[in-house]
Design a protein around this nucleic acid. Structure first.
Length: 265
RNA sequence: ACGUUGGUGUUC
């Protein structure tokens, strides 16, 4: 609701309160995320005239916006521009670039960006590792995914719910549901909670592995633990039961879905 | 102090 923002900002200025770099970063990020990179650039350029100097957060927001639009080339251009301004990139600069390579399933470029990040002396975080582990495991390079998981632990990072979910997904995709279940046990033992995405991922693996009975049990477990099923959960299970020829169960879940006022899409 | 980045389904 940028019209309201505009009114609010002018009210602020009327009271002698002027936007600072954080205000601009917030606005630039909002436009950037919504795909309006042109407006984000305009705000970026107008900062200088107000005596405000764009910083790493400012450029990172734009790099992210361009990556989200799939404009990797232009994102690299802004990256170069920020270097030219004498700014040092950080993990939040490289992560959107990595994520975009992963979205395109470009494991090769993702690895290049990861190496580049290291050359700049930037320390990869959980997001960086999660991205590359995911792209490797989805693209026939699961050994490499596990190798990076090893590097991640070696660097002192501790796997969180998202990292475990990526690994569970990786094991399932690579035909090792047993090891995926072992990962789930490990994460719980280490005090890491399973969220709706973790459950959905494992349910999908069980369905694809024709382990519908186990999927059913896991579904019950998630509900008992107060993790509420979403669209992904129900679509995954409905698909699983359809493929398995169990239409009555599939239709039952479909009804559950409408009863929960989750409108089928 | 406040602002930027990651994971799951259907389309055989």
């Amino acid at each position: 609701r940028f019209d309201k923002v505009k009114v609010f900002l002018s009210q602020m200025e009327g009271k002698g309160v002027f936007p600072d770099v954080v205000t601009y970063n917030t606005l630039i990020n909002a436009h950037s995320r919504q795909g309006n990179v042109a407006e984000a650039f305009e705000l970026l350029n107008s900062m200088w005239g107000l005596g405000l100097k764009p910083g790493v957060y400012t450029y990172n927001a734009i790099v992210n916006g361009l990556c989200k639009k799939g404009d990797y080339v232009r994102a690299r251009g802004v990256f170069d521009e920020m270097l030219g301004m004498g700014l040092s990139p950080d993990a939040a600069t490289f992560n959107p670039l990595l994520v975009e390579c992963c979205r395109k399933d470009d494991a090769c470029e993702a690895e290049n960006v990861f190496d580049e990040m290291l050359r700049y002396g930037v320390v990869p975080d959980l997001i960086s590792f999660g991205s590359v582990i995911g792209v490797f495991s989805r693209n026939g390079l699961f050994d490499k995914a596990l190798e990076y998981f090893g590097k991640m632990k070696g660097s002192g990072l501790v796997a969180d719910t998202v990292i475990y979910t990526i690994l569970i997904d990786g094991y399932c995709r690579n035909g090792n549901v047993a090891e995926a279940l072992a990962m789930r046990n490990e994460m719980v033992e280490k005090g890491c909670f399973m969220d709706v995405v973790t459950y959905n991922t494992l349910l999908n693996g069980l369905c694809r592995g024709k382990m519908l009975g186990d999927a059913d049990e896991l579904f019950k477990e998630m509900v008992e633990r107060g993790v509420f099923p979403d669209y992904y959960t129900l679509t995954t299970l409905i698909h699983g039961y359809c493929k398995d020829g169990n239409m009555s169960r599939a239709l039952g879940l479909f009804e559950t879905m409408t009863q929960r006022s989750l409108k089928p899409d």
